[in-house]
Structures are given as C-alpha cells and as structure tokens.
Amino acid sequence: MSPTTARKRLTREESRAQTRERLIETAQHLFVSNGYGGASIRDIADKAGYSQGAFYSNFSSKEDVLLELLRRHMEGEATQLSTVMGNDRQKPEQMLAELEAWASTLNHDADWCMLSIELQLHANRSQTFAAEYQKVWDKHRSEIGGVIGQLFNKLGRTPPAAPDELAAAFMALSHGLALQRTTTRSDPSGRLIMVFLRGLIANAECLGTTAVAPTGSSSRELKKRRPSPD
C-alpha cells in the first residue's frame, strides 16, 4: 500500500471524538427504534462496536446522551435562524421568504419527532433529568426570542408581547404538533408558525408608537411602557 493510500492514523483526540460520535448516533437510533427505556448502555455500546467502558469514558449515563441529542437539535435550529437573519441587506419580504423556507423543514425529521416524545416522557418521570431538560429549553427559548426581537426590529414593528414569550408559544406549537405526528400525515408546524408570525407582524404597531420589549421582559412590563392615549 502506497503512503498516499494508507489510512491516516487518528490522534488520541480524533479517535475519542469518533468514538463519541458513533455512540451518539447509535444511541439515537436505539432510542427511536426501541424507546429510551428499551435501550440499555450495553445495547448502545455493543451496537456501536465498543465496550461499556468506552461509553462511560464519554458519558456518565444514558441521560447524558439524551441531553446531548437535544442540545444538538436546538443549537442547529438557532444557528439556522441566525444565518437567515444575518443578512442586513435583505428586504423584508425576502427575509420572510427565507424564514418560510426554513420553517418548511421543521419536524420533517421523523427520528426527531420520536425523540421529542422520548425526551418529554423521560422528563416527566425523572426530576433530575427534567431540571437539565428545562435548562436546555430555557436557553433555546432565549435564543429564539432574540431572533424574534431582531426580526420585528428589522421590520420596524413592535412585538405584541415579549420576544421570549412569543418564542415559547412558537416552540410549544412546534413541539406539540411533533408529538402528534404520524407516519401517514405531514407535519404542518412550519406553515402554521409562519401564518401566526405574519399575522402578528401585520397587526403589530410601528416602532416609535410603543417601546420594544427586550428579550426576557414580561407582557405586563411591555404594557406599562405603552404611552397612555391622549
């Protein structure tokens, strides 16, 4: 075998990263096909081609893997939205069209819809997992709220509620519809989110009429900032 065709020897860090990725991919497959409770650490390690020791070198428990899958999904969504909103030269309709295109892909991953169910069920059964699960959701809600606030600012509109609250509503809609998804029916999450978003934008007051609520502000605080009618 020539040097050019010889397999590159992985560094220790690269080898560990590869092991971790295989364990995560295998765990996702087993969680979806067998359910969280039906996939043991031994099953995950064996299916990935590693020992249980290799699993514990990367994760302390199955819950760690489940949370990692959630974080990756949430971070991916936030990154995609930030990319859509990152072009300051976009015209409003072009920006909304790109949001439509992004929203059309929501919940199209059947595996993620199944994982959503497993995540919610396990959070309902485990208080320790629920606390970490909530932290990931809170972080994601804050990130999505920031994007929503940015969108309304670019459109010269005042959000009708705090961006974080709007983010929570859209996330609840998407998550709820994902939980109801069946293999024979397409998921309408993205389309409905854009219907509601366009409706909110169309009815929102122009900037200057009211103050924009910063991310994290409550709707009650927003109302207090509104000037009283003459």
Rank of each mutant, 00 (worst) to 15 (best):
G76I: 02
L67N: 05
A204P: 09
L69G: 10
L10S: 11
P227I: 12
N107T: 08
V84Q: 10
R20N: 08
G216F: 07
P159R: 10
Q120L: 06
E25G: 07
Q150K: 15
A204W: 02
H73V: 00
Q180C: 08
I144F: 14
C206W: 00
R12Y: 06
M1R: 03
D138L: 11
G216K: 05
A168D: 13
P92G: 06
I201Q: 01
E93I: 03
S40T: 15
N203Y: 00
D111I: 00
T183F: 07
G149D: 09
L99I: 04
D164Y: 06
S2I: 14
F170E: 01
L222M: 14
A211V: 10
M85C: 08
T183K: 07
Q134K: 13
V32A: 04
G53C: 02
D187I: 03
G146D: 11
V195H: 02
E75V: 13
S228P: 00
L200D: 00
Q180N: 11
F170W: 09
M1D: 00
A97T: 10
F152T: 03
A162M: 04
T128Y: 06
D138K: 10
S219I: 11
L66S: 08
Q90L: 15
A6W: 00
T79N: 08
K139D: 15
L197R: 02
T210R: 15
A211I: 05
S219C: 05
V65L: 07
G156P: 13
A45I: 03
D187K: 01
D43T: 09
C113H: 05
N34G: 01
E98T: 01
L119P: 02
H108P: 00
H73D: 15
I117T: 12
A97V: 00
F31I: 09
S218Q: 07
